[in-house]
């Protein structure tokens, strides 16, 4: 393959696809064009599926290297990861092939008895950190900190039944704060992110974003 094709080929494909999808998103097009557009989007999902497979293979390769080299302090964890990955993939595949999906007992057992409690535990531990951090973070050192504390307490009490017992107005006040103050604060963040996406898209169209491997 020539250098030109290797360098500009992928960029041309990206450019054409981006322009095509941009036009079909904003304008009504003939049925044939929309049918092709639906296919292009499907290809995206299929490519994503293969990307996941590539990711799994890459993780395997990475950890097999640790296992082969017997890297101290690492190889045992790599072994656990490899066994878990292969076992989950194998039982999951059997589930799909036999038509029971994720209800296939060995797969469901692995999931419900290892992943579910581990995930729930990690998330639950956060509660302790948040409680401890709140105790320190809500220290009233100046006027803005006092404002933060007041708003924090209103939202916390508004989210609990305890707040309703103390004063029934906490819940509507908390909803009002979220609908008006919080929404106003988050709006520029979302608009900023949107502008960032547009700029990245434009840079890609103009060939300023380098995705290719030179």
């Amino acid at each position: 393959m020539s250098v030109v094709a290797r360098r500009y080929g992928p960029q041309a494909v990206i450019l054409l696809m981006m322009l095509f999808l941009l036009v079909t998103y904003f304008f009504v097009m003939p049925e044939e064009v929309m049918g092709f557009e639906a296919n292009v989007i499907k290809w995206g999902s299929i490519a994503a599926g293969f990307a996941m497979m590539v990711g799994a293979i890459d993780i395997l390769r990475y950890h097999i290297a640790f296992l082969v080299r017997r890297t101290p302090g690492q190889w045992l964890y790599s072994l656990v990861l490899i066994v878990a990955l292969l076992l989950t993939a194998a039982t999951g595949t059997i589930g799909v092939v036999t038509g029971v999906g994720t209800t296939y007992e060995p797969f469901a057992w692995l999931y419900n008895n290892i992943y579910v409690p581990a995930d729930a535990t990690i998330y639950s531990i956060l509660v302790f950190y948040i409680a401890s951090a709140s105790f320190r973070a809500f220290r009233v050192r100046n006027a803005p900190a006092l404002l933060l504390l007041i708003v924090g307490l209103i939202v916390m009490l508004g989210n609990t039944s305890l707040g309703y017992v103390i004063w029934p107005g906490f819940t509507p006040l908390s909803v009002w704060l979220n609908k008006n103050i919080v929404a106003a604060a988050f709006r520029p963040i979302i608009i900023g992110a949107g502008l960032g996406i547009i700029i990245t898209g434009l840079r890609t169209i103009l060939g300023r974003e380098l995705y290719r491997r030179e």
Binding site: A131, F135, R136, L153, M156, N159, T160, L162
Partner: peptide, 24 residues
């Protein structure tokens, strides 16, 4: 589970208020 959530929030609020009182 709402009672449990309320009690937990109540405890955290109590700690925050007490922490501020003694800090000042």
């Amino acid at each position: 589970a709402m009672d449990a959530q309320s009690f937990a929030h109540g405890l955290v609020i109590a700690f925050i208020i007490l922490g501020n009182v003694f800090y000042w």
